[in-house]
Amino acid sequence: MTPLSQLLPGQYGKLASLNPERSVDQRLMALGLLPGMVLKLVRKAPLGDPLAIEFAGQVVSLRLTEAQNILIDVAADCPIQRPRPPA
């Protein structure tokens, strides 16, 4: 599992977990982002923060600090994968 803040632009995967105690996550749930749903990191802002994510046919922006605790299962078939660190 990867924190949403560490996804690469273009990477997508299933939402593994979010924390309903946090107001950001409550907002996202109201927008229809629920566990198991596929979301994609579309891009980062020119200064690296905030992020633009796409889910359920909509694009939403949120800050890096707000994306840290949102965990994503990056899809195995996703063409963009973070290179594994050399063993």
């Binding site: 946090r22 107001s23 950001v24 907002r27 996202l28 927008l31 905030p50 633009a52 909509q58 694009v59 939403v60 922006s61 949120l62 800050r63 707000e66």
Partner: peptide, 10 residues
């Protein structure tokens, strides 16, 4: 006041 998360629809 509690700050609002900056969740913004594009």
């Amino acid at each position: 006041v509690k700050p609002q998360p900056f969740v913004l629809e594009l």
